[in-house]
């Protein structure tokens, strides 16, 4: 594909709950260049062809995590996926798998964020005054930082959640995002949550439910590797230190 305009066909999943609720696909022809992203192509549709199309986006630079969708069958960020890299004349876009659909390409993240929240994604300190009012700074070595920094890159886009075959079949499974965030705090040298953190995911729908399909790490746009965090978390649960 050169710098010139070319046409691609966008096959877009449409669903409107107020309209009988039957999903369908609409096809739009969109002019694209070498550097057109799937998000720009969708915005072209919304501006020029069909203003009723619902999409969610904000930063357009793979930072806010709001434009995740299934693009040609894989969960990807629409703002981070070039039409030219897909190498196909027809591009199918659908809402993320494993999420309920609000409208068109907009998925409902209520459960997803609820699971994230259940992991207490903040530093826990035993001293309650320090927990609530602390303005102390905590020192950390490079080695201590390296244990969790990779997992702290998560932008909560939900792509891993959409790729996970266990989430697809077990609604109580917290999913790769939440579990990797649990490990991120558990292994942080400043955190004193210890065993209390592990308890949240120690039942049969928790971390042991992961079957290590690794799809989460394949699709993560930030290189977080949730599958690694989950395996390390499992090791902690099975053989690790039990404090707190």
């Amino acid at each position: 594909m050169s710098g010139k305009l070319q046409e691609v066909r966008l096959r877009v999943y449409r669903y409107d709950p107020s309209n009988g609720g039957r999903p369908r696909y609409d096809i739009f022809s969109v002019p694209v260049k070498k550097d057109t992203t799937v998000l720009s192509a969708l915005l072209y549709v919304k501006e020029k062809l069909d203003p009723t199309l619902s999409i969610r986006f904000s930063c357009r630079m793979a930072t806010c995590g709001s434009c995740g969708m299934m693009i040609n069958g894989l969960p990807r960020l629409a703002c981070y996926t070039l039409v030219s890299q897909l190498k196909s004349k027809t591009i199918t876009v659908q809402p993320l798998n494993n999420f309920p659909v609000v409208k068109d390409l907009v998925a409902d993240f209520t459960d997803f964020f609820g699971k994230h929240r259940a992991m207490k994604p903040y530093l826990l300190r035993i001293d309650t005054y320090e927990q609530e009012k602390s303005n102390i700074s905590y020192r950390q070595t490079d080695e201590e930082l390296l244990k969790y920094i990779q997992f702290a890159y998560c932008i909560r886009c939900g792509l891993c959640y959409a790729a996970c075959p266990v989430v697809a079949t077990d609604k109580r499974f917290p999913g790769p995002q939440a579990l990797s965030q649990l490990y991120r705090y558990y292994i942080d040298s400043r955190d004193e949550g210890g065993g209390e953190r592990l308890e949240v995911v120690s039942d049969s729908h928790g971390v042991l439910r992961c079957h290590f399909a690794g799809s989460c790490s394949q699709v993560c746009p930030k290189g977080v590797d949730p599958a690694l965090a989950i395996q390390l978390l499992r090791r902690e649960l099975l053989f690790g230190r039990r404090t707190g």
Binding site: Y15, P100, V101, V102, P165, T169, F212, A213, S215, Q218
Partner: peptide, 30 residues
């Protein structure tokens, strides 16, 4: 809000390991 058919989803994720690389094949075969 629409929820896609859970049985269809389950069968698809088990039986169609395409697109996610070798580990997904390992998962399905296992």
């Amino acid at each position: 809000m629409s929820v896609r058919n859970p049985v269809v989803t389950a069968l698809k994720t088990w039986l169609i390991p395409r697109r996610y690389g070798v580990m997904r094949w390992s998962y399905s075969l296992q």
